[in-house]
Amino acid sequence: MPSNIEKCYQCGQCTSVCPMGEQEQTYKIRKFLQMEKLGIENEESIMTPFIFYCTTCYRCQDNCPQGVNIVDGVLEIRANAVHEGKMLDAHKKVAQMLMDYGHAVPNNTAGREKRLQLGLAEMPSTAQGSDDHLDEIRTLLHLTGFDRLIADEMPDMKVNEGLTLTKAGFDQPIAEESA
């Protein structure tokens, strides 16, 4: 659903009910919506990384007197940030898991042992255990450009993660060069 943040009149109800805002004072959803509305997000952004703090609990949206699809707005702001090369390092790793295993949380040694103890197959019947299915997923991720979205961020992640993350630091997104 496209967001409708232009309907926001800045009452602040969203921030007042936000459980993340209660814990992290830097996460101010009302302020981020206004910045997005006015288009004042820029390279010196204060929205990233904080826009990624939202747990998408929808409490703000449920309490908005204007019926703003606030979480959809957050997702749009995030998507724009990601496409400008501002994906968080921790999220890049999750994205790479999807590319490598077809799963954000792939199976591991402890998982396999537990499965066997329960009388389940060592590997679940999911994509991770099948090269053919993994090929399908990687083909789709290539067709949608997701592989390039990730690759732009961290060309050498597997070779030398530390070096890459330093070079392609948060404030100097490589994506800017290709934009």
């Binding site: 998507a79 994509a127 789709l140 450009g145 979205l149």
Partner: peptide, 26 residues
């Protein structure tokens, strides 16, 4: 029935906010 070869759904908060087409496609 087993859903052979199913992948990550993919996770709504993460992948949906990275790229909606990727999220919808998987």
């Amino acid at each position: 029935d087993d859903l052979l070869g199913a992948s990550c759904c993919p996770a709504p908060g993460v992948f949906r906010s990275f790229d909606e087409e990727t999220w919808l496609t998987l």
